[in-house]
Design a protein around this nucleic acid. Structure first.
Lengths: 156, 156
DNA sequence: CAAGATTGATCACTCAATCTTG
DNA sequence: CAAGATTGAGTGATCAATCTTG
């Protein structure tokens, strides 16, 4: 979004701005990495990325439990989607619904012992899939600089 | 648990690496921007982001036409999804199927005059939605540095 | 048989409506 | 009435299978 000094935008009708092009790269990178992680997770477990993120969020929370709204933020989905997501996780005993005593409208989604065990197995699979996907993406000259920038931004 | 009150109590078995955290930010940013653009496009037109990207790809191609595989790369979807995508675009006369004379297995998806007109109207809507989404995302301290890095990477 | 495209079945996500509780 | 969660209906994306052509 930084102002570009002395470059006139292309007058070609239908041409995207520099920012538009940048976002196009982000979408491409995201699609590639996301698809790869999704496939790898489903190949090894009985769930995909949304379920993994939900388990991760619960595992990191106090008492291993979170409410629908909190989970929605953590997995980037809405209430409705999360309600169905935790129904899937519950079917395989990875999480369980716990009633909230102080506000009976609320429902806690708590990760089970089995859920913790499976999640721990999934973490290294996820991390490996992520690294592999990025290695693959770096082969694309248009994506390599973006891949580098992302990790550099959050390198501690 | 919690036997060490010192530093790094997050050395828990289920903790994500720095790269893992970085990708979490990317997913959050992508979800927010993607959702916003999708909603804005559908509010103004009769299609969403995938259709917009397909129109953009065709508009930028020689003769305004592309084959399924090329479109699949441009919009980050597979053959099957693109086949249905162009069926939708065809229903509203934004594109048309053109047979390939030299390889009758192939099919060209060509943007129509009407498609070009609508696409030109959509570009500024898309660009504005993109900027608005990023402005919103920058309000989140964990996403701001990523937002900056993305545009800086392609600002040449 | 391989490559390109389409179709049937299935699934995850979304919106809108509904139900319950504060 | 507002907030939190769930459910019904509809859509877009995917896999696998199929059809056609090289």
């Amino acid at each position: 979004m930084a102002a570009k000094p002395t470059k006139a935008p292309k007058a070609v009708p239908g041409a995207l701005s520099a920012d538009g092009v940048a976002w196009t790269r982000v979408m491409a990178l995201h699609a590639q990495v996301d698809n790869h992680i999704e496939r790898v997770l489903r190949r090894h477990f009985e769930f995909g990325l949304s379920e993994f993120l939900a388990l991760a969020a619960c595992a990191a929370a106090p008492d291993g439990e979170l409410r629908i709204q909190e989970l929605a933020t953590a997995v980037n989905l809405n209430q409705s989607s999360v309600s169905r997501l935790i129904s899937r996780l519950e079917r395989t005993e990875l999480t369980e619904r716990r009633l909230c005593e102080y506000d009976r409208r609320g429902v806690y989604t708590g990760i089970t012992e089995r859920g913790i065990e499976i999640y721990r197995q999934a973490v290294p699979v996820y991390e490996t899939a992520l690294r592999d996907a990025f290695t693959q993406a770096r082969a694309d000259a248009t994506l390599a600089p973006l891949a580098d920038a992302i990790f550099a931004t959050y390198a501690d």
